[in-house]
Simulated scan of single mutants.
Amino acid sequence: MLPGLTCRPLTPDDVPAWVDLLDRAAAVDRPHVRDSAEWLRRSLTADGFDASTQSLGGVDADGVLRAVAVVELRLGDLEHLRLPCDGVVDPGWRGRGVGRALLAWGESAARDRVARRRRELGREVTADLQVWAPDHRDDVARLCARAGLSPLRYFSTMRRALPEGAEPPAPQVPEGFRLVRFDEHGTAGLRDLHNAVFADHWGSQPLTEADWERFVVGNPDFRPAWSFGLLDAASEGDGDLVAYANVYAHESDWPALGFAQADLGNLGVRREHRGRGLAQVLLAAVARRAREVGTAAVSLDVDSENPSGAVGLYERAGYVRVHGDVLRTKAL
């Protein structure tokens, strides 16, 4: 299946070798982000993920892991199935057709997973294979083009520097709202708010409780003490959560960056409360907190075609574009 390699599904025991493989590839590929060992381990054991059919490892004659691919599907995808295929080939094994074979396996595995999911849903739904890659990876662009995947969307990573000795200004919370930190307030109601906020965003579908646990509050990189919500103080009780900013610490990225960085994963404001400056309040709160805990920057990813004007919002808050990613897809 993979030229010159023995193939088998991955297990959690493969994670250390997987990390080593990613290290070797990173020296050549200069990736923007790195997955931690804990994240890889959780990926292989996540609800709805069958490692026996959705993962593939290729080992050489000495038993060294030289290639990996995984195909995922979020359980919350009900109207359109998205199947990201993530793969890596050892630089010393490139140019032998391993990458092409790995992507071909990924497409086949995705088609099988789509068929099972359609049977589970009892109806036909559209689906596509997805490959995400930094925009400087011309090799991935060529590989995807040969396999029939086309660019669909472009994303930018933006960063705000937080120089030492220059404390960001305190957030100015409008009257009628209350700013809370999630380590103190808790995250009750946050999933419902997230699903409501992103209902009108491109490609978004509701997160199930399992996916919410895996990707958000149960993510080992999630930092509730760096994350904030805004409550409508006029509502009953403690107030309804109407806006939020979730922040992560992807410490596996820090060595390559050369500094510690906070990563803003999601920023959202309920539709009826937009236009009141709440997003700016949250950005200010995140920047101030990030400086307090000793990070040197805040980073975020944004859809370059976001119709809400998010790019301009971030630029006004001091963020600048540092690199980009391309989403390529193929209908299944």
Rank of each mutant, 00 (worst) to 15 (best):
D221H: 13
P168G: 10
W105P: 13
S55H: 07
T208H: 10
A115W: 07
A331R: 13
R142Y: 01
A127Q: 06
G318F: 05
N266Q: 14
A287I: 03
W254N: 10
R42W: 02
E164I: 10
E38A: 15
E305A: 15
A147L: 04
V33F: 14
V302G: 08
R289Q: 15
G58C: 07
G258F: 10
A234N: 12
V28K: 11
V114I: 10
V88H: 08
V59S: 06
V28F: 08
V64D: 14
V173F: 06
W93C: 14
A296W: 01
S150D: 14
W254P: 12
R137I: 00
D135Q: 07
D23C: 09
G229M: 04
P91C: 03
G237P: 05
D14V: 07
R146L: 12
S204P: 00
A262V: 02
G324D: 15
D221S: 15
R316H: 11
L81V: 12
R42H: 11
L193R: 04
F228P: 09
E164Q: 14
G48R: 05
A310P: 07
D112P: 00
H136V: 09
V217A: 13
P84I: 01
L40Q: 12
V59D: 04
V68K: 05
S227Q: 10
V217D: 15
P9H: 06
F228I: 04
W254L: 11
A225M: 00
A67M: 02
V247E: 06
G58W: 04
R214S: 12
D35W: 11
D35I: 03
A51C: 08
R146F: 09
L241F: 01
P151T: 05
P169N: 05
G99L: 02
P206H: 02
G95P: 01
R118Y: 09
F182G: 09
G318E: 05
P151H: 07
T11D: 11
S227L: 06
D13M: 01
L75N: 11
A290D: 08
G237W: 02
H32P: 00
R142A: 15
A233N: 01
A234H: 12
V173Q: 06
V247S: 09
P31D: 07
A17W: 05
N246S: 15
G4F: 05
G87S: 12
L241I: 05
M1W: 08
A26H: 11
V33C: 04
A51Y: 03
L5P: 11
S308G: 00
G165L: 11
A249E: 13
L10C: 04
G48H: 06
L10W: 02
Q205E: 14
V71A: 15
N195Q: 04
A243R: 09
G76V: 05
W132D: 02
E213N: 12
D23H: 13
L5F: 02
E251W: 09
L230S: 08
R271Q: 13
V125P: 05
E107Y: 01
R274K: 10
A297H: 08
A115N: 07
H32A: 15
H80M: 03
D90W: 01
G148A: 12
P224D: 09
F259D: 00
L278G: 09
D325S: 14
R94E: 02
A296D: 09
G57F: 10
T11P: 01
V286S: 06
R181D: 00
V28Q: 14
T53N: 03
G165M: 11
R123C: 06
P206R: 07
Q280L: 03
P168I: 12
